[in-house]
Simulated assay, not measured.
Amino acid sequence: MLQLGEQITLYSVVFVVVLLGTRSAVWSTVLTVSLYMFLAMFRFPQVPASRVQQVLHPAGAGSKVSVVAHRGGGHDAPENTIASIREASKNGATGVELDLEFSADGVPILMHDDTVDRTTDQSGPLSQMSFSELSKLDAAAKHRLREKFAGEKIPTLEEAVEECMKLKLTIYFDVKGHPDEAAAALKKLYKKHPVLYNSSIVCSFEPKVIYRMRQSDPDVVTALTHRPWSLSHFGDGAPRFSSLWKHHWMTLMDVVLEFGHHHVLWKLCGISAFLIQKNSVSLDYVQHWAQRGVEVVAWTVNTKVEKDFYQEVLQVNYITDSLVEDCEPHY
Rank of each mutant, 00 (worst) to 15 (best):
V209M: 07
A49M: 08
G293V: 07
K208N: 08
K187V: 09
V17H: 02
M1G: 10
R51A: 07
R43P: 04
V96A: 07
S322P: 01
V116W: 07
S200F: 06
C203K: 04
R144V: 15
L252Y: 05
A69D: 06
Q7C: 06
Y172V: 14
D236P: 02
A238T: 15
A40C: 05
L189K: 01
S230E: 15
V301M: 03
E101Y: 01
D308S: 12
T225W: 02
Y331E: 14
Q277K: 10
V221R: 05
V65A: 11
L98M: 13
G72D: 06
I154A: 03
S34C: 14
F205P: 08
T81C: 05
I82H: 01
L10M: 11
Q277G: 00
C164K: 00
Y172F: 15
G5N: 11
E79N: 08
E312P: 00
V68N: 10
L31V: 13
L323D: 10
R118F: 03
V17F: 12
L169A: 05
E325C: 08
K136E: 15
K208R: 09
L31F: 12
V30K: 10
L39F: 11
G177Q: 12
E325F: 01
L98I: 13
D105N: 13
D326G: 01
K136F: 00
V65P: 06
S28W: 02
S24A: 08
G21K: 08
S216K: 03
A49C: 04
L244Y: 04
D174R: 00
F205L: 14
T120S: 11
F173A: 04
Q291M: 10
Y11D: 11
G60A: 06
S135N: 13
A184S: 05
F38E: 13
I154Y: 04
M1F: 05
L157H: 05
A93Y: 02
I171G: 02
D105A: 10
T225S: 12
E158H: 10
P45K: 11
I319V: 15
L56H: 01
Q315R: 15
V17R: 00
H288P: 00
S24Q: 08
R23Q: 14
I276Y: 06
E163N: 02
L10H: 01
L137E: 12
G62L: 03
K90T: 11
V161S: 07
S123C: 05
V47I: 15
Y11N: 09
F309A: 10
V195W: 00
D114E: 14
P218K: 04
R292G: 02
A104L: 13
K208Q: 13
V26Y: 12
P58D: 13
Y331H: 13
D308G: 00
A141N: 06
D174Q: 09
R86P: 05
G270Q: 09
I154T: 07
T300E: 03
L100A: 09
V301E: 09
V96F: 03
G270M: 03
K64G: 04
E97W: 05
A40I: 10
A182D: 03
M129K: 14
L196Y: 06
